[in-house]
Structure formats: structure tokens, C-alpha cells
Amino acid sequence: MTQLPQSTERKMGLVIDLDTCVGCHACVISCKGWNTENYGAPLSDQDAYGANPSGTFLNRVHSYEVQPAEGAAQLIHFPKSCLHCEDAPCVTVCPTGASYKRVEDGIVLVNESDCIGCGLCAWACPYGARELDAAAGVMKKCTLCVDRIYNDNLPEEDRVPACVRTCPAGARHFGDLGDPDSAVSQLVAERGGMDLMPELGTKPVNKYLPPRPKDTIEDQIDILAPLLAPVAEEPKGFLGWLDKALEKL
């Protein structure tokens, strides 16, 4: 049913560190790979090798430039996928019950065999987390790699979402955000984790850690700087003569 649960036993989700993300898009690729080869309809591409390629992705990395009132602009890479909202508007609009939020862990999923591909859930999502697959005609979204995180056939270190497992910068963290003592909850508390578009009342489970302030550059870069002044001067003596002679040639 598309009625949202009053509360969920756990709130599994991601914490994304905007300070650490280097914008390499490895999470995008590993997500596409895992979710194409495993659960559900594959994430299709259209005209993949042609002039106008386009395809379904459950995770996309944007890049933003933030210009403070004073000082240099900062480039911030911004991965974005389903935030598994507590008050998920995508679930309640679904006419067929294909979209649902799990009571046991709060993951928002789509039952693809019930999806009629009306697209209304994608309209209701403010984050662009849902994409209608052009080949399969059903709605695709992040499953939080539900087929990895409980998968006893995988080594224990692999029982996290593919994006988290692959991130070379350690910018993605996975855990229970409903448990205040969990590592991710402590990280959020310590770093001031934030919600995206809080004014829309979706209560996202996923949190974003804001970039730490950058060092400011003082007038003098280094106390050794004066000693490093350029030493090239007008050549004298034999070299001076050679220089002049060569100039005249």
C-alpha cells in the first residue's frame, strides 16, 4: 500500500560528505553497473554510441560553484540520489501501490511488476531521484542496494551500497540514521549534516555534510618567501660579453 508507515524500525540511508567528494563519478558508474546487472529492469541507454546519448541513472554527480561575498569561489561536487524521505511524496501519489516505503528499514522501493509507468512519482519528487526507464517503461530509483546490504553471499565488507563501496575518497557513508549512536548519526551531529530543500517537508533520511571552511591565504604565503626571491640578474663578466656578442649576431 502507498500509505506511508507511521515510523520505521530503522532509517537506513547515506551520508554524503561534500568536503571530501572529488567529483570522480565512480559512484555513478558502480551504481549503474550493479543495478544494471542485478535486481530489476536494467538501466538502459539510448543512442549510447551515437550523437545524442542518454540513459537512466540512479545517482548523478552535479558540480556547483559557490562564490562567497569575499575571497575565492569554491567548487563543490554534489552527488545526488534518492534520499529515502520519511515523508516521501513519491509513495503516496502512486495509484497502483508499486511504490512503497519499507517498515523494517525505511527504504523506498518500486515493485516493477506493479508499475504502470505513469511518471507521477517522478513529478512528485523534488530531487530528481526517479527516472522512467525508456526501454522498460517502469520507474527506476535507488534501492540503497537492497540486494547487497543483506546479501549473505557477499563478503561482509561488500554488504554496503555499491556507491559507498566504490568511493575512493571515503565521501559516502552508509548506516542507520534512526539510531543516534550509529557512526553515521554521530558524523551528522559532529559535522552539521543538512537536509536538501527542507522547506518542502519531505524529511529526507540521507544527509549532506557541508564543506569545511577553506584556509585563508595571508599576505605573506611563507616566512621563507623573501629568501626565495628570484636571483636572475644581468649577467656580468665573460657571460655578459657572450650575451651581448650573441645578441649582435
Binding site: M1, T96, G97
Partner: peptide, 11 residues
């Protein structure tokens, strides 16, 4: 199947 979720869905 779209007739099933009248409790929450306007569609």
C-alpha cells in the same frame, strides 16, 4: 492496478 490506492492517490 491503478484502482487500488484510492486511500492516498489522487490519480
Amino acid at each position: 492496478k491503478a484502482f487500488t490506492q484510492w486511500k492516498t492517490s489522487w490519480l
